[in-house]
Design a protein around this nucleic acid. Structure first.
Length: 270
DNA sequence: ACAGTAACCTGTTTGC
DNA sequence: TGCAAACAGGTTACTG
C-alpha cells in the first residue's frame, strides 16, 4: 500500500494527536512482522514522552529521549489514532497507548516492521545505505545520471532502488516515467542527462501532488483519520492496462519488470 | 559490485 | 458455483 506519499500523509495525520504526549502502555498482539517486534518495548517506552515524528524514505521515526521507534508499513500496513478503548480487530498487531488515545498498527500481510534503536536512526543498518530523499535538493537529474552509468537494469527498476533514491514505489515509478516520456524497460545507462533532469522533475512533481491529495487509496489505505486518499483519481497509467492513453489514445500496455507490473504507453514513452 | 530470484504473509481477483 | 492460481502498494537475503 504505502509509498512515500502515503507514509508522509500518515505522519502528518498522526502527529497533531500524539506528538508531545506520554506513552502509558505498549500492546504487542502479534510480534511476528518482517522482523520480530522487540519484546522489551513496553519497559523502554512506558512513561516516555514522544518528542517528534520524522520520516526517512518509507520509515517513520518516532523520537523519544532514550531512542527511536522505527515503523515501516510494508505492503499493507496502516496507522490510525483511535480511542484506546476501541476493540482491536483482526491484524491490529501493535498499539502505542497515550492515555485515552492510541496509535494502532494494522497490517494484514505483516511485511511491516516495528524496530527500536538507541543510535541516531540514520546509522541503523536498514537506513544507513539509503539514497537521497526525492524531495530534497540532493536529488537531481545529475544524481540519477551519474549513478546509472555503470548499471545494466531497466530505468524503472533503477528508480525503485532505495540505494538510488528512496520512496519511489511501483505506482509512482510508473506515473513518473509516463510524465517524463520514458519507457520503463529502457536500460538506465542509455538515458541522457537531459532526460534524467526531466525524470527527476517528474518524480518530485508526482510525489508532491500525491501528498497534497492525501496519498493513493487502491484497496484499503486510509489516512490517520480514516479518510481515503484521492490520488487514485489522478493516476494516468498505473492499473490501466488496455485503457486509452490520456495523451494519444493508444491502449496502455502492461508488462512485468523485476517481478512488478509496469504500465506504459508505447507511443508516448520511448 | 551487480543482477536476478525467492522469500516473508494474507486477502482479493481472475480464470477454468 | 467452486476452487486454485495469480496477483497486490515493499524490501531483504541469497545465489551466481
Amino acid at each position: 500500500m504505502p509509498e512515500l506519499p502515503e507514509v508522509e500523509t500518515t505522519r502528518r495525520g498522526i502527529r497533531p494527536h500524539i506528538q508531545g504526549k506520554t506513552v502509558s502502555a505498549v500492546v504487542i498482539r502479534q510480534p511476528s512482522l518482517r522482523w520480530p517486534i522487540p519484546r522489551e518495548l513496553p519497559q523502554l517506552l512506558k512513561h516516555r514522552k514522544l518528542d517528534s515524528i520524522g520520516r526517512r524514505g518509507k520509515y517513520l521515526i518516532l523520537n523519544f529521549s532514550n531512542g527511536c521507534l522505527l515503523l515501516h508499513l510494508g505492503m499493507s500496513g496502516s496507522l490510525r489514532v483511535l480511542p484506546a478503548s476501541t476493540p482491536a480487530e483482526k491484524h491490529d498487531h501493535f498499539d502505542l497507548v497515550f492515555g485515552k488515545q492510541c496509535l494502532r498498527l494494522h497490517d494484514p500481510r505483516r511485511f511491516g516492521a516495528v524496530l527500536w534503536t538507541e543510535s541516531p536512526p540514520d546509522r541503523h543498518p536498514l537506513l544507513h545505505k539509503l539514497g537521497p530523499e526525492p524531495l530534497s535538493d540532493k536529488f537531481t537529474g545529475g544524481h540519477l545520471y551519474r549513478h546509472s552509468r555503470t548499471r545494466r537494469i531497466a530505468v524503472k527498476q533503477f528508480i525503485m532502488d532505495g540505494k538510488v533514491v528512496v520512496g519511489v514505489g511501483n505506482i509512482y515509478a510508473n506515473e513518473a516515467l509516463f510524465h517524463a516520456g520514458i519507457s520503463p524497460g529502457r536500460s538506465c545507462a542509455s538515458i541522457s542527462a537531459r532526460r534524467y533532469e526531466r525524470l527527476a522533475d517528474a518524480i518530485k512533481q508526482i510525489l508532491v501532488t500525491a501528498i497534497e491529495c492525501g496519498g493513493t487509496t487502491l484497496q484499503d489505505f486510509v489516512q490517520a483519520d480514516g479518510q481515503p486518499g484521492y490520488f487514485s483519481q489522478e493516476l494516468q497509467v498505473y492499473g490501466r492496462a488496455g485503457e486509452a492513453c490520456p495523451c494519444c489514445g493508444k491502449p496502455i500496455k502492461q508488462k512485468i519488470l523485476g517481478q512488478r507490473s509496469s504500465y506504459y504507453c508505447a507511443r508516448c514513452q520511448r
